[in-house]
Design a protein around this nucleic acid. Structure first.
Lengths: 316, 316
DNA sequence: TTGTAAGCGTTATCAA
DNA sequence: TTGATAACGCTTACAA
């Protein structure tokens, strides 16, 4: 019977149909625990992440679930701490213990090649989510951050901005790097020079945005627009502007990245870049549960610019 | 040997120690799949939720993980749609299929007694998270929303507010009801009368806060402070005030509930009530994995008021 | 092509 | 108190 369920190629049509009829008749459902024992691998897919942001993690969970809902797979999650010295061992133990079928890695830990290799060596398929080509198509879903940022800058230039500030993400993060490259692309394409005094670096957190904003807004000729590498820092820049009585958006346009809940709820609502998280997670889950067809699932996803009230033409 | 691992009471000390030595020596780790098969129950605890808010779900996941990290348990999540007619069947199938050890139910679906009963009938321990005494101590972790709101109102009264508006949550939600009761308590205790024209109802979403704010601020003598049953609606009220050129906090103080990321990032930063989510989730997980001692874990948790810039004394 | 039986790694039952 | 052995429900190698 297991031959029917597992679609073994060597059995004839008649028997198969007969067995299938009986299966349907009895309402038989295979027991995943028994299969797991026999196959030495569980029908579980693991989501390993270091909480890049709550909305994203939850969006990914929902996307994965959409894909596995009608299957026998279940989703098991594992938040980890990338600063913990035991992270590798924790993850190894987790995968071995649960005999995971596959794991999905979220940024920023998805950028760690060594981690991905370890998971693979443990005999478990890996799909990484990221903002650049971190891996081959079968093991990757990525957003094209570079292009998205470049387009956001183009939009600011189109509005008439000439002095555009940039708040980078933390060094060592691939997403931060891609966004930097995208910013440079956009400026070049718009024929604008990037000035060092209009660039600051943050760590993707609110407070660092506050500091970066204070820095960029205190130069002699402050920017009329600032692109921030994520929404949280954009909120920080907004607060920094407010503290200096600089009106947003009239005196300063701000663009963020991620389209978190915050982006829509702050004032003014933030123009930002939105990842198609659900679609990415669905594709990733498909790759995980069906590695044979993994490469045929889409790997690259275009983010789009959500235009809100935080961006207007510069004041004359 | 399983007698050693499972701490069977009927075996003598000497043998136990001998076996334990060998176990340690071999670095033996039991195989969860085999145990699951033999015991007909998996070492998985399920988190079933209808996404009350991303931050909260993720906080719960982290709390649960803190508790189960050193155990053989794993956390499997199941987002569901409470409006789907198949929700019950989905959940039943999920529990039966995965042979869950226990499930944790998050609000608002945790308020559904029938659902809790079904899970229990499936032979799986249930712990419900809520904002009131939904169940007995062994199967409940709850925040005391009623008291927390009452204290928030007391704080507004202390600042000198007399006309305090209220934005309720959706009917049928226990949390909404508790917060309403807490508001009434607080007003009574402060010797203030609740006026019908200063109350509006929302559905916990931003847009409904916008509408509620518009409504409350257009009455003849508008309130000088508004308590909102969650942060998202508070953000809506804030936008409504802004649209009417009403300055927050000088002309209007606002209080929210939940302490979401938004609360800290909007301007002005929102005074709000914070649930001790992590502690609650840890206690809940303890109850789940050790039902025998469930009742000895704390069940009630006090939320605290996070005082931020959105609340100031009323203008004279 | 199909039936049969031997694992998979535990727990639980039954004698010893 | 302990040791041996039959489940648990599936997959798979081997025979038929």
């Amino acid at each position: 019977m297991s031959r029917v369920i597992n679609k073994s190629p060597l059995l004839n049509q008649a028997t198969r149909e007969k067995v299938e009829a009986v299966i349907a008749d009895l309402g038989y459902v295979p027991n995943p625990q028994a299969r797991a024992l026999a196959l030495r691998r569980n029908f579980l897919i693991g989501l390993i992440h270091d909480n890049p942001n709550a909305q994203m993690v939850l969006g990914v969970q929902e996307g994965i679930l959409d894909t596995i809902r009608k299957t026998e797979f279940a989703l098991v999650v594992r938040p980890v701490d990338r600063h913990s010295p035991t992270m590798f061992d924790d993850i190894r133990h987790f995968i071995e213990q649960q005999r995971l079928y596959g794991v999905m890695l979220l940024p920023p830990i998805s950028e760690n090649d060594e981690l991905a290799r370890m998971c693979r060596d443990l005999g478990c398929t890996v799909v990484r989510m990221g903002s650049a080509r971190l891996d081959d198509d079968a093991h990757l879903v990525a957003s094209n951050d570079r292009q998205a940022v470049s387009e956001a800058v183009a939009w600011l230039a189109e509005l008439g901005h000439r002095r555009i500030g940039f708040v980078a993400g933390p060094e060592g993060f691939r997403s931060a790097r891609e966004r930097e490259l995208g910013f440079a692309d956009g400026m070049t394409r718009a024929g604008l020079a990037t000035e060092p005094e209009l660039a600051a670096r943050g760590d993707y957190r609110f407070e660092s945005g506050l500091a970066a904003g204070a820095q960029l807004l205190s130069v002699d000729r402050p920017p009329t627009a600032i692109f921030c590498s994520n929404d949280e820092m954009a909120a920080g820049v907004l607060h920094a502007a407010r503290a200096r009585q600089i009106d947003v958006p009239d005196d300063l346009s701000i663009v963020g990245f991620d389209d978190t809940a915050t982006a829509a709820h702050i004032w003014p609502p933030l123009t930002t870049v939105r990842w198609p998280i659900a679609a990415m997670a669905q594709a990733a889950a498909s790759k995980l549960i069906d590695p044979a067809n993994a490469a045929s699932q889409p790997s690259f996803f275009l983010s789009d610019l959500v235009r809100r009230a935080s961006t207007v033409p510069p004041r004359e």
